[in-house]
């Protein structure tokens, strides 16, 4: 029973992470929308013949090439706007955070565990989308892997902070779901899901490129094409990530 090697706190953190990981795997809805839906969406789009033909409007790229980064970001946004807020609001609403704060473990361990799990799921989903693109539709892997990875990590950080902030501010899981959906669709739009950001009218593109996932979409495009993403795009994503993190820390309510 008693652990010997690790300090009680470290082993306790592992126990919390393990328990939350089991719970994460028991949420078929989250698993589907984060891990299944985005790669599936990409696979289905690729079945449309027009998506596999080079398009001059896209600088000679095929639509399917452009949609790989979009589906990568869809998973990231599902995590931040759909999966995390109701979960965290529910943990507070049900007194789970409160119960944990009467033990030697801080309730923040639950929050941290959920952020790791959701972040990891978003990254796995990104890998799946890249694999579907590469294996099914011959979309090249990102030419600038480091720039791509950095952008993706910043976008995930922004999404996790957004999830924590929404989960912090709304009173109940039910409201969290509603608020999450309200930000979900504008964010999906900003990634270029309906219209690639590069094809948007100038004013719209200028606005979208100042949103966290619009800027991330542009940065991923650039890294995909082989360049280091524009510092301006990275700065926008990093700025949002920092702002949302500060806000989530400042306003998180444990009960």
């Amino acid at each position: 029973m008693t652990t010997v090697t690790a300090s009680p706190t470290a082993s306790a953190r592992v126990a919390v992470l393990r328990a939350e990981a089991r719970l994460f795997l028991r949420e078929p809805g989250t698993l589907f929308w984060v891990l299944g839906f985005p790669p599936l969406l990409l696979a289905i789009l690729g079945l449309v013949p027009a998506f596999r033909e080079a398009d001059d409007g896209l600088g000679g790229l095929r639509p399917i090439d452009v949609y790989v980064p979009v589906t990568v970001l869809v998973a990231v946004i599902v995590v931040g706007a759909q999966a995390m807020p109701p979960l965290l609001a529910g943990y507070r609403e049900r007194g789970i955070l409160r119960r944990m704060s009467t033990t030697p473990m801080r309730p923040s361990a639950l929050l941290a565990a959920q952020m790791w799990l959701h972040g990891a799921a978003a990254l796995v989903s990104a890998a799946l989308s890249l694999a579907v693109g590469r294996l099914c539709y011959d979309v090249g892997l990102p030419d600038h892997a480091l720039g791509y990875a950095l952008t993706l990590l910043l976008a995930v950080a922004a999404a996790l902070a957004l999830g924590a902030l929404l989960g912090a501010r709304v009173r109940t899981a039910r409201v969290a779901t509603a608020v999450g959906s309200a930000v979900f669709f504008p964010m999906l739009f900003s990634t270029g899901l309906w219209m690639p950001v590069r094809s948007m009218p100038d004013v719209m593109a200028a606005v979208v490129e100042r949103t966290p996932f619009g800027a991330a979409a542009r940065a991923l495009d650039q890294a995909q094409a082989g360049g280091w993403p524009d510092a301006a795009h990275l700065a926008v994503v990093a700025g949002w990530a920092a702002l949302l993190t500060v806000a989530a820390v400042r306003w998180f309510r444990w009960e």
Partner: peptide, 24 residues
């Protein structure tokens, strides 16, 4: 506590193991 719950999908065994692991 008077009013608190656990994670809905946590089993009794998991709850006992988890809470036991939080103490020295």
């Amino acid at each position: 506590l008077q009013e608190s719950e656990l994670q809905p999908k946590l089993t009794v065994r998991e709850a006992l193991e988890l809470y036991a692991s939080l103490y020295p």
